[in-house]
Simulated scan of single mutants.
Amino acid sequence: MTTAEEIIAHLRSLRNQRNIDGMRRFGIAPTGEQLGIAAPVLRAIAREHRRDHELALALWSSGIHEARGLATLVEDPRQVTRGQAERWVRDCDNWAATDALAFLLDRTPFAEEKAHAWSTRKAEFVKRAAFSIMAGMAVHRKELPDSVFLGFLPVIARESTDERNFVRKAVNWALRQIGKRNARLLGAAIAQGVKIQRLDSRAARWIAADALRELRSRR
């Protein structure tokens, strides 16, 4: 059985400074160790270790950016606890780690609960996680009723005045993905976008203009 230590040693052997520099130019600048491994490489490694909860915990605890990304790919959403979700989201210090975690958590039974709860948090990446989860649920959770996503729209409007770049981009993303889910939600998202556009906020106007441009083109 491959251990976390063996996988981490392999990851370190793939370290690429040029990729690290490129990632940092796109705002992926974790405070911990960074190896510059491309996402397709991590996905290929993950295919050998699917649904391995203990491995995921060990990889995340390493603090290495790419090991944490790999942890989200090998983790079993059915075994993630609320406490684990809270610990992991507090560890996120860049948008890429946040979104990778969101794309794990959007498949948990408590995804909707966390999306609502974290949308009120002050920490930038915790708040981003809320809206990244909404976006991920809109894409991945085909079984959910429209009511779940209609319930997200007022939250999107409420938080659309947050000027922080990584928050406003996730709010915009959530609005667009909800609107692209089906015709009913498209109409609701456009209507909400129009309301957001009227708010006295530069962030809100940007979110609305960008989302409405895409959503109206789908009619």
Rank of each mutant, 00 (worst) to 15 (best):
E5T: 14
L14R: 12
M23V: 02
G27Q: 04
E33N: 12
G36E: 10
A38G: 09
A39N: 14
A44R: 15
I45H: 05
I45N: 01
R50K: 15
D52T: 05
E54A: 12
L55H: 00
W60K: 00
S61K: 15
S62F: 08
R68I: 05
G69H: 02
A71Y: 01
L73W: 00
V74P: 03
D76L: 05
R78S: 15
V80P: 14
G83L: 01
A85E: 02
A85G: 03
R87T: 06
V89D: 01
D91M: 07
C92Y: 03
A100T: 09
A100Y: 12
A102M: 04
L104R: 02
T108G: 02
P109F: 01
F110H: 06
A111E: 11
E112C: 10
E113K: 11
K114G: 01
K114M: 13
A115F: 12
A117P: 05
W118E: 02
A123W: 04
E124P: 14
K127Q: 13
R128G: 07
M134G: 07
A135P: 10
A135T: 10
A138Q: 10
H140I: 02
H140G: 07
R141I: 12
P145T: 06
P145C: 07
V148C: 10
F149R: 12
F152R: 12
F152S: 11
L153R: 02
P154N: 13
P154W: 13
P154R: 07
V155G: 09
I156F: 06
A157N: 06
E159N: 11
E159K: 11
E163W: 05
N165H: 13
F166S: 00
V167N: 02
R168P: 01
W173A: 05
I178T: 08
I178M: 01
I178K: 04
G179Q: 07
K180H: 05
K180V: 04
R181A: 09
R181F: 08
N182Y: 08
R184V: 14
G187Q: 09
A189Y: 11
A191K: 15
R198H: 08
L199K: 14
R202V: 09
A203H: 08
A204C: 08
A204L: 06
A208C: 12
A209M: 10
A209I: 01
A209F: 03
D210N: 15
A211Y: 07
R216Y: 00
S217N: 07
R218C: 07
